[in-house]
């Protein structure tokens, strides 16, 4: 592994625990938003694998970034979000890992 990738792999991103009430409903995650909703990223679920959160971060889902929900696929999954000025599709499974302030 190279020096740069070692440094990048060592990045720590804020883990945000869901409050008890939200734990099941995923209300404070991206997956809980409806089409047209807007929110800002606060961090990542504590249970999320580190490599996954680092990649989501590099894709623009960084703490503080504003997100809007553009559309959902015919069966409700995956979901297209607008972040950092572009559109990207995530599955519910990943969207659940991203905590938002809504």
């Amino acid at each position: 592994m190279s020096l740069v990738s070692e440094i990048l792999a060592g990045r720590q991103l804020p883990a945000v625990e869901a409050s008890q009430a939200d734990a099941d409903t995923s209300a404070t995650s991206l997956a809980g938003l409806r089409v047209g909703d807007e929110a800002a990223v606060t961090g990542f679920a504590a249970a999320a694998p580190a490599a996954t959160t680092r990649r989501l971060h590099d894709l623009g889902f960084a703490p503080g970034a504003p997100i809007s929900v553009i559309r959902k696929a015919p069966l409700g999954d995956p979901i297209v979000f607008r972040v950092a000025g572009y559109e990207i599709a995530l599955r519910r499974e990943q969207a659940k890992l991203i905590r938002v302030d809504a």
Binding site: P49, Y86, E87, I88, A89, R91, Q94
Partner: peptide, 10 residues
Amino acid sequence: GPVLPFYMEM
């Protein structure tokens, strides 16, 4: 093995 994220730019 780790479950890697699914993402796809539109």
